[in-house]
Amino acid sequence: MAALVVAEHDNAALKPATLNAVAAAKEIAGEDVDILVAGKDCRAVAEAAAVVAGARRVLLADDGAYDHGLAENVAPLLVRLAEGYSHLLAPATTSGKNLMPRVAALLDVMQISDISAVVSPDTFVRPIYAGNALQTVQSKDPIKVITVRGTAFPPGEATGGSAAIEAIAPTGSVGLSEFVRAELSKSERPELTSARIIISGGRGMQSGDNFHLLEKVADRLGAAVGASRAAVDAGFVPNDYQVGQTGKIVAPELYIAVGISGAIQHLAGMKDSKVIVAINKDEEAPIFQIADYGLVGDLFRILPELEAELERRQ
């Protein structure tokens, strides 16, 4: 048994989600975990992957065809490498979700999406129905193609390993698709999926401008800022803020939901947080049922007060 983990990166840095996927891979394949870095001018990423604790080997496929991780080009590479592995894993990020089913279909196997536990090398637990049920599935396929729910696998150590980096031949471009441009959100704050504290706003925030009330509290706490679908749909904040069933899955130490009612689709993305705080003016809001600490009241009064109190007690 051996597992290959597809590294998440931007050609410059290895993204933390990779470490969660490596943790899942280790549960399956023990010492025999390799990491694939496919990109362009991404040697630095391979070097970061090589020191990940428990990595056996790093495969580096450096080629223009892999620059933006286009699934059409990367999938054939994984198909070629699949021969040497029993398991192919990627983090359940938008890039992992985009790539892995394409690989699975080319290998004629079912993907096991978004696993939250490893029962045995062929049996896994995965959430269905927005996490309102947990399904245990056994794969009958010769090779397991898996995406990993990061919040379910504590990340392994980013350093301490000493894997060899092996450059591998690229498969080239299949010429079906091209990258045009990216409009990425820039923020000094921590990334949502790896933040220790998150404060999220919903429709109750009323406007994008009002998010600065949240941001001030976030700055006091070193928190990331998230949102409900309603806040994104209304244009208050960009799409990458969305937490939920069809957005980002997060499980920080502390999640503060402000002006969010607590629809199941939102809960799906945050209910595994260690501590949940809800601030809402409607005491019947469903979010209070899962909150460890609920505060009923007007967020426009509470947020400035919270900021001041945090400052006072710092």
């Binding site: 933006h68 286009l70 990020t93 938008t94 890039s95 079906l176 698709s177 091209e178 990258f179 045009v180 441009r181 990216a182 409009e183 990425l184 959100s185 999926t193 960009p238 799409n239 990458d240 980002k248």
Partner: peptide, 13 residues
């Protein structure tokens, strides 16, 4: 496309 970091645009045949 909506991606984790924001938006990405691709051209496909």
């Amino acid at each position: 496309r909506e991606v984790d970091g924001g938006l990405e645009t691709v051209a496909i045949k």
